[in-house]
Structures are given as C-alpha cells and as structure tokens.
C-alpha cells in the first residue's frame, strides 16, 4: 500500500473516530432510562465503531512494520506513548459497545433492570473512552503522520 493511500486511510479513520464518539453518545444518553428502547441507535453505533476499529487495526500493521512507528517515537517519545494508549483504549471502546449492543438488542427485559443498567453503563463507558481515543488520535496525527 502506498504512503498516500495510508495517509488517506489514516485521515478517514480519524474522522470516523470522532463520528463514533457522537454515535456512541446517543445510546449512552437515551438508555439512561431503563424503559427506553434504542435498537437502531445501539446497532448502528456498534457497527460504526467496529468499522472504525477495523480500519484502524488495518493500518496499524503497516504503521508498525514500515518504520512509521519508529519515526514517531524518534520525533517524540511522548506522542509515541500517547498513540499506544489510544490503541489500548480502542479495544475497550469496541468491547463495551459490543457488550451493550448485544444486551440491548437480544436480552432486553423490562422486568430485569440489571440488564438495562448494564447496557447503559457499557455504552456510557464506551462513549467516554471513545472521546479519549479520538482526542489522543487527533493530538498524535496533528504532530506527525506518514
């Protein structure tokens, strides 16, 4: 893959990341009320998060293998570590979104409020972590790209 393509994918990934924050905030806010349903919101925000994660994971390989990671660390170790933090937290974003989505879509039961509470907390934590991930990603991308 050419450097221009990787740079383009990186920009797309960054923009999708910020859209993920907004998408995940919706179920996180709506599901505060255990009686509310937000099936489409839960499903679409999770699919969107999975797509963004897959794109980021896809470009992480060339980033590590082709010397871009090395160049980032040489330019600033602090930014290199911020990048690593972002990758770790992104795993939490996806895992919690998937957990919240599965629970809300297939296990919702008005008589069992613990399930609704779990779905809400999962989406709320996912949205919070996504905000941190998007901020860190923007900081690093603004400092150094491919």
């Amino acid at each position: 893959m050419s450097v221009a393509t990787l740079r383009l994918l990186e920009h797309v990934h960054g923009h999708l990341g910020w859209l993920c924050v907004a998408a995940l905030a919706h179920p996180a806010l709506v599901l505060r009320d255990p009686a509310r349903r937000a099936r489409l919101s839960a499903l679409l925000s999770t699919l969107f998060t999975a797509l963004t994660f897959a794109l980021g994971a896809g470009i992480y390989g060339p980033f590590s293998r082709d010397g871009a990671r090395h160049a980032l660390y040489v330019a600033s170790q602090r930014h290199g570590l911020l990048f690593e933090r972002k990758e770790h937290l992104a795993v939490g974003v996806l895992a919690l979104a998937v957990a919240g989505c599965l629970t809300h879509l297939f296990a919702y039961d008005r008589a069992r409020p613990a399930r609704a509470r779990f779905a809400h907390r999962a989406f709320a934590c996912s949205a919070g972590l996504a905000l941190v991930v998007a901020t860190l990603g923007t900081l690093v991308a603004a400092f150094k790209s491919w």
Partner: peptide, 22 residues
C-alpha cells in the same frame, strides 16, 4: 446482578492499563 459492575470493571481495567503500561 454482577453485569453492571462488569462494565465498570472492564472500563477501569483497560484505562488503568492504558495509562500505566502504554
């Protein structure tokens, strides 16, 4: 009943690891 706590534990675990061991 343990599920809501599991969501918090997950967020806490990944955050602590990300902050302390990047």
């Amino acid at each position: 009943r343990a599920l809501p706590a599991l969501a918090l534990a997950t967020a806490l675990a990944i955050t602590l690891q990300g902050v302390l061991v990047p």
